[in-house]
């Protein structure tokens, strides 16, 4: 029997450009299977939205992403 271990990284509050390097290093410690839970994220900036777009493109699962962030991500994807 094999078990698949999923690491869920839950972030909260606001994330902006200055937090991204720390978030990136946290995520990289756990490999591509990590799930990013955004349920408690209150505010993000455009740099973070771009980062999330890249994460998702790389196959990362974003959980509980708020509608405004999702809409913003879609908008940026359309623009690029």
């Amino acid at each position: 029997m094999t078990f698949k271990i999923t690491v869920v990284l839950r972030v909260s509050g606001r994330i902006d450009a200055e937090h991204l390097s720390e978030l990136r290093s946290c995520l990289s410690r756990h490999g591509p299977q990590v799930v990013l839970d955004l349920d408690e994220v209150r505010l993000v900036d455009v740099a973070t939205v771009r980062f999330l777009v890249r994460c998702e493109a790389d196959g990362m699962q974003l959980r509980n992403c708020s509608r405004y962030i999702r809409k913003w991500m879609d908008q940026l994807k359309e623009e690029s």
Binding site: R14, D16, D45, V49, E79
Partner: peptide, 11 residues
Amino acid sequence: EEIVGSSASLR
């Protein structure tokens, strides 16, 4: 505070 949006004028 981080000004939600990414329009050209805001950028």
